[in-house]
């Protein structure tokens, strides 16, 4: 086997701690430690996703991960699955092609708020409209992290980013409402702190037939740094203190504003809608 991998990443040999024996087979250990910043929530999602895939009841080789560009786009590369890291914003249509060509596959798209809602926004609403039988995990960190902190479609009004130095003047997307309105079969919002709930939600997503969307709130130090919110720990504490779980919340009222006074989480929507193809 090639040894370039280790040179390219860290140069050290890493063994996965014992706690991850169950998902040892699913993580590309030779690529750890991963590239994400200290305090990034993506590592947590990676673990949960691997566990959920392991326990989904669907054979592992039938799982396919499709990711676009951005920090979140790297998640597929750490999962020892058939993974496709494609162009910016095009993970959803690529996944639609995979699923249509082979309906036996369980196709999951993981992308950031920029990848799925900005450059890939059109694909997102149309896949939801058709109710394509794929899963979409949107990791919402409120900013473009990898490119250095520009505002994204979910950046709250007032937030400072490298491209909104005087405060952002646009309104952000309310992701669950958007997904619901566009026609998704399953819509949930959790944070990386709500691990049990998020894990159950991921399992549910694999069971749902139709377009399943989970918005995962995740800390990003690029965002918190610029807005004097402290570090990732402080952000996590805000989520811990201010979030409420309300499965029956009125989706129109669950915007997340800059103050983050109210963060509503829950499994909001589960409905049966005809799927676009058999």
């Amino acid at each position: 086997m090639s040894t370039e991998v280790e040179v390219a990443t860290t140069g050290i040999k890493v063994e996965l701690p014992k706690a991850y024996d169950d998902i040892k087979d699913l993580i590309r250990i030779d690529r750890l430690p991963h590239i994400w910043c200290p305090g990034c929530g993506l590592g947590i999602l990676l673990k949960l996703l691997a566990r959920a895939i392991k326990n989904s009841g669907i054979p592992i080789e039938k799982h396919v991960i499709v990711t676009g560009i951005g920090c979140t786009g790297r998640i597929g590369g750490y999962l020892r699955l058939d993974a496709y890291h494609v162009t910016h914003g095009r993970a959803i249509p690529f996944a639609v092609g995979l699923k249509m060509a082979n309906p036996e596959l369980e196709v999951t798209v993981v992308g950031g708020d920029g990848d799925i809602l900005a450059i890939g926004g059109n694909h997102f609403i149309h896949a939801a409209r058709r109710n394509d039988d794929i899963n979409v995990i949107i990791v919402n960190n409120f900013i473009y992290g990898m490119t250095g902190g520009q505002y994204s479609p979910t950046t709250p009004k007032g937030a400072k980013t490298t491209t909104s130095p005087y405060g952002h003047f646009e309104n952000p997307f309310n992701v669950p409402l958007l997904a619901y309105a566009a026609g998704a079969s399953y819509v949930a919002r959790w944070s990386v702190l709500h691990q049990n709930e998020l894990y159950q939600s991921l399992l549910e997503m694999f069971r749902v037939k139709g377009f399943a969307v989970i918005e995962v709130l995740s800390p990003c130090i690029i965002y918190t740094d610029r807005n004097a919110m402290g570090d990732a720990v402080d952000f996590m504490k805000v989520i811990k203190e201010r979030s409420t779980i309300d499965h029956n919340a009125n989706l129109a009222d669950i915007d997340i504003d800059f103050s983050m006074k109210k963060i509503v989480l829950g499994n909001f929507v589960k409905r049966e809608r005809p799927v676009s193809y058999g």
Binding site: V14, P17, L32, P33, C37, G39, A232, M236, K237
Partner: peptide, 16 residues
């Protein structure tokens, strides 16, 4: 058991 080489000092474990 901590694997020090994997740690990036995010302090999540300490704080939570």
């Amino acid at each position: 058991l901590v694997n020090p080489d994997l740690c990036k000092d995010c302090r999540f474990c300490i704080e939570f």
